[in-house]
Amino acid sequence: MNARYVPWLFLMPAIVIYGFFGAIPIFQTFYISMTDQVGVAAPGEFIGLNNYIDLLSDDYFLNSLKNTGIWVACFLFVPNTLAIIIALLVKRTFWGASLIKTVFFMPLALSFAIVGVIWAWIYEPGVGLLDQLLTLVGLDFLIVEWLGPHAGNFSVIAAAAWRQVAFATVVFLAGLSAIPQELIEAAKVDGGTRRQIFFRVTLPLLKPATTIAVSSALIQALLATEIVLTMTRGGPFGTTEVVGYRMYMETFWNYKFGYGASIGVVVTLMTATLVVPYVRRMAKAQEREWG
């Protein structure tokens, strides 16, 4: 057999599987988003970009877009900053270090849906863990309606961040252990204070870990759906609705498959334009520094 075709033969299983479960559904979604399909009984009619035009004036969608924006902003900074701090603290070996690490990693074993259920209990007014704790330490004036219209979106984000911190901590711990100790020592001899060493040596050298943690945070924030479903179902008054949840509602509750698909396409494009250039830029820098 011609040597030119042999590699394709070996790649065929992967191409077939990816094609069936990846590429074809994506293209199909693009197509469906340009139809007025309702339900799954019959294909809809081609209506061009009408769904997208409707989205621009759909207050529900625009509201969810705003909430997703808040998700992205919070998710980029809060879990990753916390994770770096925790990773720096538990990096060193001390008595009980592995126990503490386990505690921090545990949320990773839970899906976002379960995280939602757990935190819905924690936020339960009056009897929930959070309210009881605050009452116990005399900070009960801080208590608000956690899943109410004002705090709701942030409370859901905080619950999801709890799990994201666990993920990012694992990533940053691995990243920290990949930094040669000699470099930190060289920076000490060069006269760096702890702060200078962190910002000018450690943090830049965490680039591979940061790339993973940041792109994961972006993707999780843009796609968040299950946790909203199990915690608030978008309420009250849509204050916790995000685009993923909107897509789910339009598609599977309102059976507007075409319209739901167009939201899906918007999410995909947002993810691609935010994540892909970032990952490429970081990969290039890493190539230059580490080879």
Partner: peptide, 20 residues
């Protein structure tokens, strides 16, 4: 004294150059 206060410079075995 901290290393930086000792007025020394060190050349490390693996060079310890900052890759970035």
């Amino acid at each position: 004294l901290q290393p930086k206060a000792r007025d020394i410079a060190m050349v490390f075995q693996n060079y310890a150059l900052y890759p970035h």
